[in-house]
Simulated scan of single mutants.
Amino acid sequence: MPADTVVEGASFGEWTGRWWNWALSQPIEPFLDPDGRICDRGQDGPVWYLAGTDGSFDAHRECVVPEGKYLLIPIINMVQMRVPATAHLSSAACEGLRRSAAVNNDNLASAVVLVDGVKVPDVTAFRVRSGRCFELAARNANAAADGYWLFLRPLPRGRHVITVGANYDSGRDRGYGTMVQNFEYVVHVGGRTNLTSL
């Protein structure tokens, strides 16, 4: 879905903030999941969150997703935080967070996404930035996010494969400036699909 998508009254940008709150509030951060074993943790509501990685490994995950769920998937993304959170973060402080979150995403080197073997065209059209800063309750922080995302309408029942490869090249090693992201999900919508040969 396009970057101006609204789901259940919330913008694409608001959903990415909710994704960060989900990801950082779990006992094990889902972007460290090696194989999908924790993909159902903390999932509630109309949008099912999938995770990338922290750039330190390639992941192949399997996940059972209920029917009728939108899927929100980071292609490659960043969040910047200011601790402790304040209810009245100044506009200048928020803008500083937004600029910091943007640095690596301004230097996207490549991004390829396949859904069931079909290449998603022009991934750069799916860059989503925080319109305003949000509270990251799990870290008692104010935060801003920036990145490339895939927001999918509910997939039909059955087995689907989502493959993501992306990397930054900001010319700096600090702050994930050369991060490489490679992961694949086998998503079983409506229950696990067992393929057998006859």
Rank of each mutant, 00 (worst) to 15 (best):
Q80E: 14
Y70A: 07
Y49C: 01
S56R: 13
V123E: 04
L71W: 00
A109F: 15
P121D: 08
P84W: 07
I73N: 09
Y49L: 04
M78E: 15
D54I: 08
L89P: 10
Y70I: 02
Y70M: 00
V47G: 01
G55K: 07
S91M: 10
C39M: 06
K69Q: 08
V103W: 04
R98Q: 15
A93W: 00
S110I: 11
A92N: 08
F126E: 09
R41S: 10
A92K: 09
A85W: 12
P74K: 02
V128P: 04
E67A: 09
A101S: 11
M81C: 09
M81R: 07
S56H: 13
I75R: 02
A59P: 02
E67N: 10
M78D: 15
C94P: 02
A59L: 11
K69S: 07
V123I: 09
M81Y: 01
D106L: 13
P66H: 02
P46H: 07
L50H: 03
D58Q: 13
P46S: 11
D40K: 11
N104V: 12
S110H: 12
K69I: 06
V79L: 10
N105V: 14
I76T: 06
R99H: 11
D40M: 09
A101G: 09
N104S: 15
N107T: 08
D58Y: 08
A102P: 11
M78N: 14
S91W: 04
P74L: 02
G42V: 00
W48Q: 03
Q80Y: 07
P121Q: 06
G42E: 01
V115P: 00
C94Y: 01
D40P: 05
R127K: 12
H60W: 11
A87T: 12
V83Q: 13
G117W: 10
I75Q: 06
V47N: 02
A92W: 05
C63V: 07
R41Q: 13
R129E: 09
N77A: 14
P74E: 02
V79K: 04
P84R: 01
G96K: 10
V115D: 02
I75N: 03
C94D: 05
D116Y: 01
I73D: 04
V64Q: 04
D58K: 13
R127E: 04
V128S: 11
Q43H: 00
V128D: 07
Y70G: 01
S100T: 09
P121R: 04
C94L: 08
A102R: 14
A102V: 06
V115E: 04
N77E: 07
A93K: 00
G55V: 11
V120S: 07
R127G: 01
P66D: 08
S90T: 12
G52Q: 07
T53A: 06
M78Q: 14
P46I: 00
K69T: 05
H60T: 15
D40G: 12
R98D: 10
G42P: 00
V79E: 06
G117F: 06
V120R: 05
L50G: 02
G68M: 10
A102T: 11
L72V: 04
I38H: 12
L114T: 10
G68C: 12
L71S: 02
L89N: 04
I73P: 00
N104M: 11
L71A: 01
M78H: 15
A109M: 14
R82A: 14
V112P: 00
P74A: 06
N105D: 15
